[in-house]
Design a protein around this nucleic acid. Structure first.
Lengths: 218, 218
DNA sequence: ATGATCTTCTATGTATACATAAGGGAACCA
DNA sequence: TGGTTCCCTTATGTATACATAGAAGATCAT
């Protein structure tokens, strides 16, 4: 086998969580996982260990693994960290992007206008991802990009994008416009501040959602 | 056995790296680890998996594990991320600390003065850790604190604290004073900015060190 | 009937066995 | 002498076997 089996299992389980087939609190036992993927317990166990290291599942000794749940407190914490990281990326991008890259970023931004007009959330979500990815590239910091990716992945397990709300979608586009301008003009502090506001807005929706979920079933 | 064996091994190996008994690039094979700790290959292997998930070692399929090396690029990246996170913590602390906590922070800061006067780096390093820990507490964000802890741990593998330099030690104390003032007055933006400068200074020493190391043996 | 204690049973943690891919060395050829 | 190919060794990846800690259930006493 070319790829590591445990790696494949890990991705499958992540996918299950992301698509709601597994929910926070669900128990994952090694035997069942092994049977499901038709492997022995060893790779199943190793997949769980990797998930635990990433914080996706909680591994209680002698009690197996459960899908991590997110407290409102943790949700807010993640939003705050993501905000700081995204803002840093925007600031660095303002400093480091070439004029060619800045022009491309502006182009990416404009390309999303069509999706906004049609209120086409799935399309805009793709545009949005491309826009932010361009900023990560421009920041010239792989480690930062990786930290953002991990944090976002972990958040994605628990919420649908706020961009499914038409109001949020329109606001997002406006905010992107201002961020693009700030980066274009090389204004590091402004780019940071604008990105901070941008992420915080979307993040609040996430934190509110978690708070509601938790209140409902205590 | 009460604790997980692989967990214990992981800590031992981390310790080895931190204290220089293992260097970046060193190979870690499962058999040798197992023999050294007098366990079977299974826990040894699981420890390596956990270290790999944390980025401490690199795990190449069919080729075993090597202690991760840090490129100058990665070193700079880590400093930038740490800067953003520490700044965020300081800003949040400025907003959220009670006046009692603020007074305690000021007290912690003053307590480090003696170590500065004696140029006692080990003592100051302890004071420094307590000072920063108080800020993490005040930020009311466990997730942020954990991210900072992880990043710092990973950096600590590769450098001695810049606080062993007398000049840096004195400067650190002055910077702490300004940060303390900003937090006391609840000035979020200023606290962020001052902490940013503070971390960046120390971080540059780290990045320079890595750059030099890499240039020497290419 | 309720609680406590004991027993049983299951799933985890560890060890060991087996399969296989990658690397190294030897031999052979040019 | 240099290079290529083949084989062998070794370490990783996976499977299986065994030990044991906890959980669940049953039994008994109050």
């Amino acid at each position: 086998m070319r790829v590591r089996t445990s790696e494949a299992l890990r991705r499958e389980i992540e996918d299950d969580i992301e698509h709601g087939r597994l929910s926070p609190g669900d128990k994952l036992d090694e035997q069942t996982l092994a049977e499901r993927f038709e492997v022995s317990r060893t790779p199943a166990r190793e997949a769980l260990l990797q998930l635990a290291a990433a914080g996706i599942v909680r591994l209680v000794p002698r009690q197996g693994a459960v899908v991590s749940s997110v407290s409102p407190q943790l949700a807010i914490g993640m939003v705050e960290v993501l905000t700081a990281l995204e803002a840093e990326a925007a600031g660095l991008a303002a400093r480091r992007m070439t004029s060619i890259e800045k022009a491309q970023l502006a182009k990416l931004h404009l390309a999303s206008q069509a999706a906004v007009k049609r209120l086409d959330s799935p399309a805009y979500i793709k545009n949005n991802a491309a826009f932010h990815a361009a900023i990560y590239d421009g920041a010239r910091n792989e480690f930062l990009a990786e930290q953002i990716r991990t944090t976002r992945l972990r958040m994605r397990f628990y919420h649908r994008s706020s961009l499914y709300q038409p109001a949020r979608l329109k606001a997002s586009f406006q905010e992107h416009a201002r961020v693009t301008e700030a980066i274009k003009s090389g204004d590091e502090a402004l780019a940071q501040q604008l990105m901070r506001d941008h992420i915080l807005f979307g993040g609040r929706v996430f934190a509110d959602l978690i708070a509601n979920l938790t209140n409902r079933k205590p």
